[in-house]
Design a binder for these strands. Structure first.
Length: 255
DNA sequence: AGGTCAACCTGAGCGC
DNA sequence: TGCGCTCAGGTTGACC
């Protein structure tokens, strides 16, 4: 991961005015007029460690870091909490950028992003509009951040299952009732996953080290050969590859 | 123009 | 024990 020029200097003594998120990017609005843009990629994680004894912030307790550094600790930010925020990313697909806050909306990473799935801007109509004329499979279209922002491979597979839509279906054929079902399914899968603290497969953990729980509730993801969770369906979960990514679905009840 | 695929990295897990 | 292969929560850019 290449870092911005003079990265440390541009962060030193800066205050974070606001922490937010757009699509899969974490945004720290700094008092310097720049925004620190962060992406975890596949394997990135942030962890917060107390500098002295344990640190309590709200409902969270942060333990001091263990002695020694992991070789994939790429960025260590010392705050006056006092705490260390460590960015660890063994595959180095993650990203950190500093962008002029006034130009953030028009930055190439953000200007063409689709709507936030939990916002009022994401509707059956907007989804139908953005899928119109697209000949790619609906699975690939949903992974495309320009269709809807923030969905990854797990949640696309899960949402298509709950909507009863085959991942192989041509995107443009998702209209009317199917588009409504898909919007509902995307929203409910994301809400459930957030409530469960996310999905911990290999790398993902929350900043205090806690693991997510949603991986125990996957209906189809990573369940190849297992029975379909729908009680009235006798199908078995199948794995196929689309656009180079694994897709899991039930051929019996997704069409 | 739009779709597909390799590339970017490291590590874990598997079969032999 | 070790080698070689496949796979992994993502995104971009080159190529048809």
């Amino acid at each position: 991961m290449p870092f911005p020029p003079h990265f440390a200097e541009r962060l030193t003594s800066r205050h974070v005015k606001r922490l937010s998120r757009r699509a899969k990017y974490i945004l720290a609005d700094l008092d310097s007029g720049e925004t620190l843009v962060m992406h975890l990629g596949m394997s990135g994680r942030f962890s917060v460690h107390a500098m002295g004894r344990e640190l309590r912030l709200g409902n969270y307790v942060y333990e001091p870091a263990k002695a020694g550094r992991d070789k994939h600790d790429h960025v260590i930010i010392r705050t006056d909490a006092p705490a260390e925020i460590v960015f660890n990313d063994h595959r180095r697909f993650g990203l950190m950028l500093l962008v002029d806050t006034a130009l953030l909306e028009t930055h190439p990473l953000f200007e063409a992003l689709g709507p936030e799935p939990l916002s009022t801007g994401f509707t059956a109509k907007s989804l139908e509009d953005s899928l119109r004329g697209r000949r790619t499979p609906v699975k690939s279209a949903l992974l495309d951040q320009h269709t809807v922002a923030g969905l990854g491979n797990i949640y696309v597979c899960e949402a298509l299952f709950y909507a009863g839509i085959s991942p192989k279906r041509v995107a443009s054929s998702v209209r009317a009732e199917r588009a409504r079902a898909l919007v509902r399914a995307i929203r409910s899968v994301l809400r459930a996953a957030i409530k469960a603290g996310g999905s911990s497969l290999r790398d993902y953990a929350q900043a205090n080290g806690a693991l997510g729980e949603f991986q125990h509730r996957f209906a189809v993801y990573d369940r190849e050969g297992k029975p379909c969770p729908r009680s009235n369906c006798k199908g078995k979960i199948k794995r196929i590859v689309q656009g180079g990514r694994s897709t899991f679905f039930c051929p019996g009840c997704q069409s």
